[in-house]
Every structure is written in structure tokens, then in C-alpha cells.
Simulated assay, not measured.
Amino acid sequence: MELLHLRYFVAVAQELNFSTAARKLHMAASPLSRRIKDLENELGHRLFDRDTHHVTLTEAGIALLPIARGVLEQVDSIRWRLDETTRPGRTTLLVGVPSGIHPDLRERLYDLAERVRDRFEIKRWPGGTERLVDAVCDGRLALTLARLPAGGDPALEQLPVMSERLGAVVPRDRFSGRESVALAELSELAYAGSPSAVTNAYFRGLDQQLSELGIKKRIELGSATFDGISEIVASGLAFSISMLDPRSPMQNYRLDNVMVLPFSDFQPRLETGLLWRKDRASHGDLTEVVAAARAIFSEPLRD
């Protein structure tokens, strides 16, 4: 049995969806399914019940899950435990930062860096939420800010740090003079999702919610950037959703014919959390840093 087989099993067990788990593992669904079958054959137990619509854990799968997680936690902790033992003096810690974080949240990161500067040097590392969370799990990052919900790994602990109101990004010439907009008024426009929508659980859920509320049209932009979405909105073909606060970095991507309006009948909010590994914070190398973070982020920001 290889460790990769256990990682594949845990990923599918967390998602209960082979396609989603494969995307998280950066592989195709078919080879993932074959690896799970190989593991089942080696263990002599079926781990999942599968049909065309649902994936569920069998009794054997339920029993294996905590064992597999425990093994992976021990393996993933080897790197930081070794570093803790051999690295003298001031330690550099990488903290994950997703795109578009609010300046008030960034200011609190600066406060954290200042509070622990005698023993640690905090450096920021950019990326998408799921990749950043994976990097915390395997020890490459010490902590990360992440758009919630973020993963379901019980080895991680998360602290809510900010809640931001979201609004509709719409063509200005069509909604000029308006103070808000109703979802029904957007039904003729296509929804252009955030560039992070494919890999972000919150935006995947938001897309489904919009569909259930009557927004059926979609524009698939692939790897388009935020300014690319702004171009589509400015042309009058679509609307999108982004932070309402004018101080948000996302506001920098607006073009002349683009504005952000609050919804009159829909109240979406984007939640951000700070995540770390429990074992590193409990008598581990991050005990001091996490204690400082808990104090600095004790009152979640809310716009």
C-alpha cells in the first residue's frame, strides 16, 4: 500500500464526489477511481458504495477514514518537526493569502508579524484557497487565510476573521442612478463567475444558489482574470458578484461602464478564516504564533 492511495481515499471520503476530489488532487477522475479500486482490492474491503448520483462510505470505509487521516498527519508532520529540531534562531513562517483580501485584514496580518517578530519572520504566500489549504495540510505553509468553507480535514482548525457583503457587478449604462438591484432584473444577463469559482467551494455554492433563484444563463470564462470579467460586464453581456466595500482591492478592476450595487432581495456574504494544523498549534512549533493570532483576530471584522 502506498501513501498516495491513502491520500486519494481521504480526498474522496471528504468530498464524496470523485470528480471534485480528482480536481482537488489535480488529476482526472478515471485514474482516481482505478486507484481506489486498487486499494479496495489490496485491503479486501469495498470502501465506497457508488451509483450514478451518489457516493457513500461503507462500514469499512468509515472505519478506515480516521486511521488513514492519522497516518497522513504523522507523515505530513515530519518536515516541520525536523525543521523545528534543526533550525536555530529566528524562524521564517509562510502565511497563505488569497487574492483580494480586505486592507483591514491585511493590517491585522501586519500586527501578527509585529507581535511575533522576535522569534518569527512572517512572509505572505499568494494562491487560491484550496491550494493554500492543501499547503497548510502538508506543512509547506504555517497558516493561511482562506475563503470559507475551506476543506473538511479534521486535522485543521479555523478561526473566522472577516465577513464581507457581496454585491452585483453590473453595466453602469443599464443601471445608472440605481441604489440596489433585484435578482429578477439580472435574469436576462449571463452570470460570469469569479476566476476562483471553479476551485472555490463558496463560489461553487453561490453559482448553484443563483441557478435555483432563477439566474440560468452562464458565461464560461475559463482562466479569465478579474479585469477580464470586468470587460464582459462593461460590454453589457453579463453581471458578476464581488465585494461591496469600495476599499476592497476587487474594486480596482472596475472599468468606466461597470458599477457594484447591493442586492435588494439577496444577501450574499463572503466569509474568510485563518487556518492552521491543530498538531502544530498544540505544543508544536506554532503554539506562540497561533496564540498571538487568536488575540489579534479575536473580534472578526465585518463590513
Rank of each mutant, 00 (worst) to 15 (best):
D138K: 10
G284Q: 07
D227W: 01
L189P: 01
R147A: 04
M250E: 00
H54T: 11
R34A: 14
V181L: 03
A135T: 01
V75M: 14
P66I: 09
L156E: 04
E107C: 03
T52A: 12
H102F: 03
F266N: 14
R172Y: 11
D245W: 07
G177T: 10
F239D: 05
W276C: 15
S248M: 01
A190N: 10
I241F: 02
A13Y: 11
L82M: 10
A63I: 08
E220I: 08
G127Q: 03
D279R: 15
T85Y: 14
V71K: 13
M1F: 11
F239M: 06
L145P: 03
G100R: 12
F203M: 05
A281M: 08
W125P: 00
G273P: 11
A146Q: 11
R124F: 09
S242E: 13
L94R: 13
S194W: 07
T52Q: 13
L93S: 05
D134V: 06
L145F: 11
V71A: 07
G167L: 06
P268Y: 06
S187L: 06
E42H: 11
R254G: 04
A292M: 07
A234H: 02
I101H: 03
R247A: 10
R23D: 14
Y191D: 02
E299Q: 13
I232V: 14
D118A: 12
E185P: 02
Q74I: 08
T129R: 01
L6R: 05
T199M: 07
R108N: 12
G177C: 10
R165Y: 10
D173E: 04
T272A: 05
A142D: 02
A238C: 09
Q209A: 15
S230N: 06
R147D: 01
A182Y: 05
G167P: 05
A197Y: 06
L166H: 01
P66E: 11
L72W: 09
H102C: 02
L156M: 13
L132R: 02
G177A: 10
R280P: 00
P195K: 09
E121N: 15
A184T: 13
D256S: 13
M243Y: 00
A21P: 00
L186E: 06
R69L: 15
R90K: 15
L286N: 08
T52E: 08
M243V: 02
A113F: 11
A234W: 03
R302H: 09
L132E: 00
W80Y: 11
A168W: 02
N252C: 03
L221I: 08
I122T: 04
F297N: 04
H53P: 00
G61V: 05
R165S: 12
R174C: 01
P246W: 06
M27V: 15
L3G: 02
I241W: 03
V55Y: 04
S242L: 02
L159V: 08
S180W: 01
M1I: 14
L286C: 12
E73H: 09
W80V: 10
F18P: 10
A197V: 09
T272D: 03
S180M: 01
G177R: 09
D76I: 04
T58L: 06
R69K: 14
L141V: 01
G128L: 14
L237W: 04
F120C: 05
H283C: 09
V260I: 09
Q74S: 12
P98A: 01
